[in-house]
Design a binder for these strands. Sequence first.
DNA 1: TATTGTTATACTCTATAACTATA
DNA 2: TATAGTTATAGAGTATAACAATA
Lengths: 147, 147
Amino acid sequence: MAPMTTAAAPTVTTAELMEAMAAVGAAYFQDFAAAAGRHGLSSSQAKALGVVLEPVPMRALAGQLGCDASNVTGIVDRLEALGLARREAAEADRRVKIVTITDEGSEVLQRIRADMVRAHRAFESLGDEQRGLLLDLCRQVLPLLAA
Amino acid sequence: MAPMTTAAAPTVTTAELMEAMAAVGAAYFQDFAAAAGRHGLSSSQAKALGVVLEPVPMRALAGQLGCDASNVTGIVDRLEALGLARREAAEADRRVKIVTITDEGSEVLQRIRADMVRAHRAFESLGDEQRGLLLDLCRQVLPLLAA
DNA sequence: TATTGTTATACTCTATAACTATA
DNA sequence: TATAGTTATAGAGTATAACAATA
Protein backbone atom coordinates (compact mmCIF):
# COMPACT_ATOMS: atom_id res chain seq x y z
CA MET A 1 0.00 0.00 0.00
CA ALA A 2 1.02 3.61 -0.44
CA PRO A 3 3.02 4.89 2.54
CA MET A 4 1.59 7.79 4.52
CA THR A 5 3.22 10.69 2.76
CA THR A 6 1.79 13.60 0.82
CA ALA A 7 0.24 12.66 -2.50
CA ALA A 8 2.74 11.43 -5.07
CA ALA A 9 4.96 14.42 -5.88
CA PRO A 10 4.30 15.93 -9.33
CA THR A 11 7.82 14.85 -10.18
CA VAL A 12 8.66 17.51 -12.74
CA THR A 13 12.20 16.83 -13.84
CA THR A 14 14.71 19.63 -14.25
CA ALA A 15 15.18 18.47 -17.84
CA GLU A 16 11.48 18.98 -18.58
CA LEU A 17 11.58 22.43 -17.03
CA MET A 18 14.67 23.38 -19.04
CA GLU A 19 13.11 22.16 -22.28
CA ALA A 20 9.95 24.18 -21.64
CA MET A 21 11.92 27.29 -20.69
CA ALA A 22 14.13 26.94 -23.75
CA ALA A 23 11.06 26.77 -26.00
CA VAL A 24 9.41 29.77 -24.37
CA GLY A 25 12.63 31.78 -24.35
CA ALA A 26 13.36 31.02 -28.01
CA ALA A 27 9.81 31.91 -29.07
CA TYR A 28 9.93 35.15 -27.10
CA PHE A 29 13.28 36.06 -28.62
CA GLN A 30 12.09 35.34 -32.16
CA ASP A 31 9.06 37.58 -31.59
CA PHE A 32 11.41 40.31 -30.34
CA ALA A 33 13.87 39.92 -33.23
CA ALA A 34 11.04 39.98 -35.77
CA ALA A 35 9.56 43.15 -34.26
CA ALA A 36 13.00 44.81 -34.23
CA GLY A 37 13.53 43.81 -37.86
CA ARG A 38 10.23 45.39 -38.89
CA HIS A 39 11.61 48.66 -37.53
CA GLY A 40 14.99 48.31 -39.24
CA LEU A 41 17.05 47.10 -36.28
CA SER A 42 18.93 43.90 -35.52
CA SER A 43 18.10 42.19 -32.22
CA SER A 44 21.45 43.28 -30.75
CA GLN A 45 20.80 46.88 -31.66
CA ALA A 46 17.28 46.76 -30.18
CA LYS A 47 18.55 45.07 -27.03
CA ALA A 48 21.25 47.73 -26.64
CA LEU A 49 18.61 50.42 -27.09
CA GLY A 50 16.68 48.91 -24.19
CA VAL A 51 19.76 48.94 -21.96
CA VAL A 52 20.65 52.57 -22.62
CA LEU A 53 17.21 53.79 -21.56
CA GLU A 54 19.35 54.32 -18.50
CA PRO A 55 22.62 55.93 -19.73
CA VAL A 56 25.64 53.65 -19.21
CA PRO A 57 29.35 53.60 -20.14
CA MET A 58 30.37 51.52 -23.17
CA ARG A 59 31.99 48.95 -20.90
CA ALA A 60 28.86 48.48 -18.78
CA LEU A 61 26.77 48.15 -21.94
CA ALA A 62 29.02 45.30 -23.05
CA GLY A 63 28.40 43.62 -19.70
CA GLN A 64 24.63 43.98 -20.04
CA LEU A 65 24.73 42.60 -23.58
CA GLY A 66 26.94 39.71 -22.49
CA CYS A 67 29.54 40.34 -25.18
CA ASP A 68 33.07 41.69 -25.44
CA ALA A 69 33.62 45.44 -25.15
CA SER A 70 35.09 45.61 -28.65
CA ASN A 71 31.73 44.66 -30.18
CA VAL A 72 29.92 47.54 -28.58
CA THR A 73 31.86 50.05 -30.66
CA GLY A 74 30.20 48.86 -33.86
CA ILE A 75 26.73 48.42 -32.36
CA VAL A 76 26.72 51.95 -30.94
CA ASP A 77 28.26 53.30 -34.16
CA ARG A 78 25.22 52.05 -36.07
CA LEU A 79 22.69 53.27 -33.49
CA GLU A 80 24.39 56.66 -33.57
CA ALA A 81 24.35 56.72 -37.38
CA LEU A 82 20.58 56.10 -37.19
CA GLY A 83 20.16 58.91 -34.67
CA LEU A 84 18.80 56.53 -32.01
CA ALA A 85 21.63 56.88 -29.44
CA ARG A 86 24.66 59.08 -28.85
CA ARG A 87 27.97 59.00 -26.97
CA GLU A 88 28.59 61.62 -24.29
CA ALA A 89 31.86 62.33 -22.51
CA ALA A 90 31.89 61.44 -18.81
CA GLU A 91 32.92 64.30 -16.53
CA ALA A 92 34.64 62.33 -13.81
CA ASP A 93 36.82 60.13 -16.03
CA ARG A 94 37.74 61.32 -19.50
CA ARG A 95 38.41 57.79 -20.71
CA VAL A 96 34.73 56.90 -20.30
CA LYS A 97 31.95 57.48 -22.84
CA ILE A 98 28.35 57.36 -21.70
CA VAL A 99 25.80 55.98 -24.17
CA THR A 100 22.43 57.73 -24.06
CA ILE A 101 19.20 57.08 -25.97
CA THR A 102 17.75 59.89 -28.09
CA ASP A 103 14.09 60.89 -28.21
CA GLU A 104 13.80 59.15 -31.57
CA GLY A 105 15.46 56.07 -30.05
CA SER A 106 12.89 55.98 -27.26
CA GLU A 107 10.07 56.19 -29.79
CA VAL A 108 11.47 53.40 -31.93
CA LEU A 109 11.98 51.19 -28.88
CA GLN A 110 8.40 51.80 -27.72
CA ARG A 111 7.11 50.93 -31.17
CA ILE A 112 9.14 47.72 -31.25
CA ARG A 113 7.81 46.62 -27.87
CA ALA A 114 4.25 47.41 -28.86
CA ASP A 115 4.81 45.42 -32.05
CA MET A 116 5.54 42.12 -30.26
CA VAL A 117 2.11 40.82 -31.14
CA ARG A 118 2.62 37.18 -30.17
CA ALA A 119 4.07 38.06 -26.76
CA HIS A 120 1.14 40.37 -26.08
CA ARG A 121 -1.37 37.74 -27.14
CA ALA A 122 0.36 35.06 -25.07
CA PHE A 123 0.59 36.99 -21.82
CA GLU A 124 -2.82 38.61 -22.17
CA SER A 125 -4.35 35.16 -22.47
CA LEU A 126 -3.48 34.49 -18.84
CA GLY A 127 -5.80 35.29 -15.94
CA ASP A 128 -4.78 37.73 -13.22
CA GLU A 129 -3.79 34.98 -10.83
CA GLN A 130 -1.65 33.22 -13.42
CA ARG A 131 0.04 36.46 -14.40
CA GLY A 132 0.98 37.07 -10.78
CA LEU A 133 2.29 33.53 -10.38
CA LEU A 134 4.39 33.71 -13.54
CA LEU A 135 5.88 37.07 -12.57
CA ASP A 136 6.78 35.76 -9.10
CA LEU A 137 8.37 32.61 -10.50
CA CYS A 138 10.43 34.61 -12.99
CA ARG A 139 11.66 36.94 -10.29
CA GLN A 140 12.45 34.05 -8.00
CA VAL A 141 14.44 32.16 -10.59
CA LEU A 142 16.26 35.12 -12.13
CA PRO A 143 18.93 35.80 -9.44
CA LEU A 144 20.30 32.26 -9.70
CA LEU A 145 19.95 32.13 -13.47
CA ALA A 146 21.74 35.45 -14.07
CA ALA A 147 24.32 34.86 -11.30
CA MET B 1 -15.72 50.35 2.22
CA ALA B 2 -14.42 47.84 -0.25
CA PRO B 3 -17.08 46.67 -2.71
CA MET B 4 -18.01 43.00 -2.62
CA THR B 5 -15.65 41.70 -5.25
CA THR B 6 -12.63 39.46 -5.07
CA ALA B 7 -9.62 41.07 -3.43
CA ALA B 8 -8.05 43.86 -5.51
CA ALA B 9 -6.60 42.20 -8.62
CA PRO B 10 -2.83 41.84 -8.51
CA THR B 11 -2.72 44.08 -11.57
CA VAL B 12 0.37 42.69 -13.19
CA THR B 13 0.88 44.63 -16.39
CA THR B 14 1.80 42.90 -19.62
CA ALA B 15 4.87 45.15 -19.80
CA GLU B 16 6.10 43.87 -16.42
CA LEU B 17 5.56 40.29 -17.52
CA MET B 18 7.42 40.87 -20.78
CA GLU B 19 10.34 42.49 -19.01
CA ALA B 20 10.61 39.58 -16.56
CA MET B 21 10.35 37.00 -19.34
CA ALA B 22 12.96 38.84 -21.42
CA ALA B 23 15.38 38.81 -18.48
CA VAL B 24 14.81 35.11 -17.77
CA GLY B 25 15.03 34.18 -21.44
CA ALA B 26 18.24 36.15 -21.96
CA ALA B 27 19.87 34.67 -18.85
CA TYR B 28 18.87 31.16 -19.89
CA PHE B 29 20.24 31.68 -23.40
CA GLN B 30 23.53 33.06 -22.10
CA ASP B 31 23.93 30.03 -19.85
CA PHE B 32 23.26 27.80 -22.86
CA ALA B 33 25.65 29.69 -25.14
CA ALA B 34 28.39 29.63 -22.51
CA ALA B 35 27.98 25.88 -21.98
CA ALA B 36 28.08 25.28 -25.75
CA GLY B 37 31.20 27.42 -26.03
CA ARG B 38 32.98 25.40 -23.34
CA HIS B 39 32.43 22.38 -25.57
CA GLY B 40 33.64 24.11 -28.73
CA LEU B 41 30.26 24.87 -30.31
CA SER B 42 28.44 28.09 -31.19
CA SER B 43 24.91 28.45 -29.85
CA SER B 44 23.45 27.92 -33.33
CA GLN B 45 25.41 24.71 -33.74
CA ALA B 46 24.32 23.45 -30.32
CA LYS B 47 20.70 24.40 -30.99
CA ALA B 48 20.82 22.57 -34.33
CA LEU B 49 22.25 19.52 -32.58
CA GLY B 50 19.25 19.55 -30.24
CA VAL B 51 16.83 19.68 -33.16
CA VAL B 52 18.37 16.78 -35.07
CA LEU B 53 18.03 14.41 -32.10
CA GLU B 54 15.04 13.62 -34.25
CA PRO B 55 16.35 13.37 -37.86
CA VAL B 56 14.92 16.11 -40.11
CA PRO B 57 15.42 17.42 -43.65
CA MET B 58 17.64 20.50 -44.09
CA ARG B 59 14.59 22.65 -44.86
CA ALA B 60 12.76 21.61 -41.69
CA LEU B 61 15.88 22.29 -39.65
CA ALA B 62 15.94 25.83 -41.02
CA GLY B 63 12.34 26.23 -39.90
CA GLN B 64 13.14 24.99 -36.40
CA LEU B 65 16.14 27.33 -36.16
CA GLY B 66 14.08 30.25 -37.44
CA CYS B 67 16.57 31.14 -40.18
CA ASP B 68 16.85 30.93 -43.95
CA ALA B 69 17.55 27.54 -45.52
CA SER B 70 20.81 28.79 -47.02
CA ASN B 71 22.33 29.21 -43.55
CA VAL B 72 21.76 25.61 -42.61
CA THR B 73 24.24 24.44 -45.21
CA GLY B 74 27.14 26.03 -43.32
CA ILE B 75 25.92 25.07 -39.87
CA VAL B 76 25.53 21.41 -40.83
CA ASP B 77 28.84 21.55 -42.76
CA ARG B 78 30.63 22.45 -39.50
CA LEU B 79 28.75 19.89 -37.39
CA GLU B 80 29.60 17.27 -39.99
CA ALA B 81 33.27 18.30 -40.02
CA LEU B 82 33.29 17.84 -36.24
CA GLY B 83 31.71 14.40 -36.60
CA LEU B 84 28.64 15.43 -34.60
CA ALA B 85 26.01 15.11 -37.35
CA ARG B 86 25.72 13.74 -40.87
CA ARG B 87 23.59 14.13 -43.99
CA GLU B 88 21.72 11.10 -45.28
CA ALA B 89 19.88 10.80 -48.59
CA ALA B 90 16.10 10.51 -48.32
CA GLU B 91 14.65 7.50 -50.08
CA ALA B 92 11.32 8.93 -51.15
CA ASP B 93 12.63 12.20 -52.65
CA ARG B 94 16.18 12.38 -53.91
CA ARG B 95 16.28 16.16 -53.54
CA VAL B 96 15.96 15.87 -49.76
CA LYS B 97 18.82 15.35 -47.30
CA ILE B 98 18.06 14.18 -43.79
CA VAL B 99 20.29 15.47 -41.02
CA THR B 100 21.02 12.95 -38.26
CA ILE B 101 22.97 13.24 -35.04
CA THR B 102 25.93 10.90 -34.50
CA ASP B 103 26.70 9.05 -31.27
CA GLU B 104 29.45 11.53 -30.54
CA GLY B 105 27.00 14.37 -31.25
CA SER B 106 24.56 12.93 -28.71
CA GLU B 107 27.31 12.73 -26.12
CA VAL B 108 28.44 16.31 -26.69
CA LEU B 109 24.84 17.55 -26.49
CA GLN B 110 24.28 15.70 -23.23
CA ARG B 111 27.46 17.17 -21.79
CA ILE B 112 26.43 20.69 -22.82
CA ARG B 113 23.03 20.32 -21.19
CA ALA B 114 24.56 18.94 -18.01
CA ASP B 115 26.99 21.86 -18.04
CA MET B 116 24.28 24.53 -17.76
CA VAL B 117 25.10 25.03 -14.11
CA ARG B 118 23.11 28.22 -13.53
CA ALA B 119 19.96 26.80 -15.12
CA HIS B 120 20.25 23.68 -12.99
CA ARG B 121 20.78 25.71 -9.83
CA ALA B 122 17.89 28.03 -10.66
CA PHE B 123 15.30 25.35 -11.40
CA GLU B 124 16.41 23.03 -8.63
CA SER B 125 15.92 25.85 -6.15
CA LEU B 126 12.16 25.62 -6.73
CA GLY B 127 9.86 23.40 -4.71
CA ASP B 128 7.84 20.63 -6.33
CA GLU B 129 4.68 22.71 -6.43
CA GLN B 130 6.45 25.68 -7.98
CA ARG B 131 8.11 23.47 -10.58
CA GLY B 132 4.72 22.10 -11.58
CA LEU B 133 3.22 25.58 -11.80
CA LEU B 134 6.07 26.93 -13.91
CA LEU B 135 5.92 24.00 -16.30
CA ASP B 136 2.16 24.41 -16.72
CA LEU B 137 2.46 28.14 -17.33
CA CYS B 138 5.17 27.62 -19.93
CA ARG B 139 3.10 25.03 -21.75
CA GLN B 140 0.03 27.23 -21.62
CA VAL B 141 1.78 30.28 -23.00
CA LEU B 142 3.88 28.53 -25.66
CA PRO B 143 1.23 27.86 -28.34
CA LEU B 144 0.35 31.57 -28.61
CA LEU B 145 3.97 32.69 -28.32
CA ALA B 146 5.26 30.32 -31.01
CA ALA B 147 2.18 30.76 -33.23
C1' DT C 1 50.72 49.96 -14.13
C1' DA C 2 45.84 49.43 -14.91
C1' DT C 3 41.67 50.71 -17.37
C1' DT C 4 38.54 52.66 -21.27
C1' DG C 5 37.50 52.65 -25.68
C1' DT C 6 39.08 51.66 -30.29
C1' DT C 7 41.13 49.17 -34.21
C1' DA C 8 42.58 45.01 -36.85
C1' DT C 9 41.67 40.36 -37.79
C1' DA C 10 39.27 36.16 -38.45
C1' DC C 11 35.20 33.33 -37.95
C1' DT C 12 30.26 32.60 -37.61
C1' DC C 13 25.48 33.83 -38.49
C1' DT C 14 22.23 36.08 -41.36
C1' DA C 15 19.26 37.25 -45.62
C1' DT C 16 18.92 37.77 -50.70
C1' DA C 17 19.49 36.14 -55.12
C1' DA C 18 20.99 32.90 -58.54
C1' DC C 19 22.07 28.18 -59.54
C1' DT C 20 21.47 22.54 -59.83
C1' DA C 21 19.11 18.58 -59.52
C1' DT C 22 15.33 16.63 -58.83
C1' DA C 23 10.07 16.35 -58.78
C1' DT D 1 6.70 24.78 -63.16
C1' DA D 2 7.80 24.14 -58.46
C1' DT D 3 10.78 22.54 -54.68
C1' DA D 4 15.31 21.02 -51.92
C1' DG D 5 19.70 22.12 -51.29
C1' DT D 6 23.74 24.78 -52.52
C1' DT D 7 26.67 28.70 -53.73
C1' DA D 8 27.94 33.62 -53.93
C1' DT D 9 27.71 37.83 -51.79
C1' DA D 10 27.36 41.38 -48.40
C1' DG D 11 26.34 42.98 -43.74
C1' DA D 12 26.33 42.22 -38.83
C1' DG D 13 27.76 39.90 -34.43
C1' DT D 14 31.49 37.67 -31.98
C1' DA D 15 36.20 36.98 -29.56
C1' DT D 16 41.20 37.82 -29.43
C1' DA D 17 45.03 40.70 -29.50
C1' DA D 18 47.24 45.10 -29.86
C1' DC D 19 46.89 50.09 -29.45
C1' DA D 20 46.16 55.24 -27.72
C1' DA D 21 44.53 58.11 -24.13
C1' DT D 22 43.76 58.59 -19.46
C1' DA D 23 43.88 57.30 -14.64
